[in-house]
């Protein structure tokens, strides 16, 4: 099993609250995603077992939603909102800035597996644009200085 006992317990605790077991699909991914950082076939299979829903239903729903990466990615997933409000505040060039700084293109992962960079749709931080979501965390009202510091801090972080 890839899912830890703790994750399985969490999934089961959520699942029992719903009137139908299929409803536990999204909560189960959320737990899996927090533990693993992505969801893929192996996880679908495990979730299917844990909540008792056919694997195909898990996979169908999983591929419908775009928030969970479907394959392993860098330790820090940089998700730059590139929708209209952020774009008006320079998110296009923020992406370029990050590409240069990390020496990767959009959609790629750094060689040391630390950073993956993707553009995403509106994250509901329109009045604090531009922004980037790092894994689950929001970083808003960014400018070049703040962004550089954010990346540098992450790089320096050891754990």
């Amino acid at each position: 099993m890839i899912l830890t006992e703790d994750s399985i317990a969490k999934i089961k605790a959520k699942a029992v609250r719903y009137p139908r077991k299929k409803s536990a699909i999204l909560p189960a991914w959320t737990v899996a995603y927090r533990q693993i950082g992505h969801v893929d076939e192996a996880i679908y299979k495990e979730i299917s077992k844990v909540i008792g829903v056919p694997m195909v239903e898990i996979a169908e729903a999983a591929t419908f939603y775009t928030m969970f990466p479907k394959k392993p990615r860098g330790k820090y997933l940089l998700q730059v909102c590139n929708n209209i409000s952020c774009a008006l505040r320079g998110s296009d060039s923020m992406i370029t800035h990050l590409e240069n700084k990390l020496d990767i293109k959009l959609g790629e992962t750094t060689d040391d597996n630390q950073f993956s960079l993707i553009a995403v749709e509106c994250l509901g931080a329109c009045a604090t644009a531009p922004m980037v979501q790092v894994n689950m965390e929001y970083h808003e009202n960014l400018d070049a200085t703040k962004l550089d510091k954010l990346i540098d801090d992450l790089k320096a972080k050891k754990d």
Partner: peptide, 9 residues
């Protein structure tokens, strides 16, 4: 039966 699905969106 659950051996066929629609994927992506």
């Amino acid at each position: 039966e659950y051996d066929l699905g629609a994927f992506e969106r």
